[in-house]
Amino acid sequence: MGKLDGRVVVITGASRGQGEQEARLFAAEGAKVVIADVLDGQGEALAKELGEDVARYVHLDVSQEADWQAAVTLAKEAFGKIDGLVNNAGILRFNELVNTPLEEFQQIIQVNQVGAFLGIRTLAPEIEAAGGGTIVNTASYTALTGMAYVGAYAATKHAILGLTRVAAMELAAKGIRVNAVCPGAVDTPMTNPAALDPASDPEESRAAVAELYKKLVPLGRIGTPEEIAKLALFLTGDDSSYITGQPFVIDGGWLAGVSII
């Protein structure tokens, strides 16, 4: 028996990183998963690997209403219902706030904040119709504090906590629980963009990032996507049945304070 037997969950940004590991873990725990992303090649390959009876891929730009409707149609045609959503898709840009172009700021809002809003608005009625379920929003360590050079990103993640709390209040009577995961540093392409640069040495870049967080994080290391997936699983399954409207920090102790060592 899996923890998600009988569940159908849409996971955004699921072609790689945290979303990929969430899709793998949820499928292993008995869920049918809709892998939604704009990285078509990777998403299609993952769905094929997991198997057509378990997973389907759909192209989804989370900032576009039409794409959300297409995802609903595919999910219901493939699996008959939707009773879970993981709003995982997001983008990160590093820039000093006063030098951040308006276009860049708005792009981050469209993906991170508007994307989460459209996911909630589009799928909540479907989840209610299925008899209730869960929504897990991906916020961030920066949703609860500040961090230099990620002003636009931090602003959207603060907003996601607000959306999470309001949605939890409004949807509780419909049988829908809404929570947020707040990861710190996680070993994914998003937190290490240099690893995607063909001119750079991916392993060298990854090692440099790991060394940085070894000093910053009390547990002495960067987190893994698999660890974030386990928290998303907890918030999607029955083990968290009396929890809603809450942010869950998973950061190796980073938010606890500043080390002088």
Rank of each mutant, 00 (worst) to 15 (best):
M1I: 01
L4I: 06
D5N: 15
R16T: 13
G17I: 13
Q21L: 13
L25G: 02
F26L: 05
F26V: 05
A27S: 14
A27P: 02
A27E: 08
A28E: 15
A28L: 11
E29M: 11
E29I: 10
G30R: 07
V33K: 08
V34I: 14
I35Q: 00
A36Y: 02
D37S: 15
V38W: 06
L39N: 12
G41S: 08
Q42F: 08
A47D: 12
G51D: 11
G51R: 04
E52W: 06
E52P: 11
D53H: 15
A55S: 04
R56G: 01
Y57A: 05
V58Y: 00
V58C: 03
L60H: 06
L60I: 10
V62H: 07
S63P: 02
A66E: 13
D67G: 11
W68A: 01
Q69C: 05
A70W: 03
L74I: 07
I82F: 11
I82D: 07
D83V: 08
L85T: 06
V86Q: 08
I91T: 13
R93S: 13
L97I: 15
L97D: 09
V98Y: 14
V98W: 11
N99T: 13
Q107V: 13
Q110H: 13
V111T: 14
Q113R: 03
V114S: 08
G115A: 11
I120P: 03
R121Y: 03
L123P: 04
E128M: 00
A129M: 04
A130C: 07
A130D: 09
G131N: 05
G132K: 14
N137I: 04
T138A: 14
S140P: 03
Y141N: 14
A143Y: 03
A143E: 00
A148C: 00
Y149W: 14
V150I: 13
G151I: 11
A154K: 12
A155H: 01
I160W: 05
L161D: 05
A167C: 07
A167R: 08
M169V: 14
M169T: 05
M169A: 15
E170P: 00
E170Y: 01
A172R: 13
A172W: 12
V181F: 06
C182S: 12
P183V: 05
A185P: 14
V186S: 09
V186K: 04
T188G: 14
T191L: 10
A195T: 14
L196Q: 14
P202L: 11
E203S: 07
A208L: 13
L219R: 13
R221N: 02
I222C: 04
G223H: 07
A232T: 15
L235P: 01
L235I: 10
S241L: 04
I243Q: 08
T244I: 07
Q246D: 11
F248K: 00
I250E: 01
D251Y: 09
W254M: 10
L255H: 02
V258W: 08
S259Q: 05
I261C: 01
I261N: 03
I261Q: 05
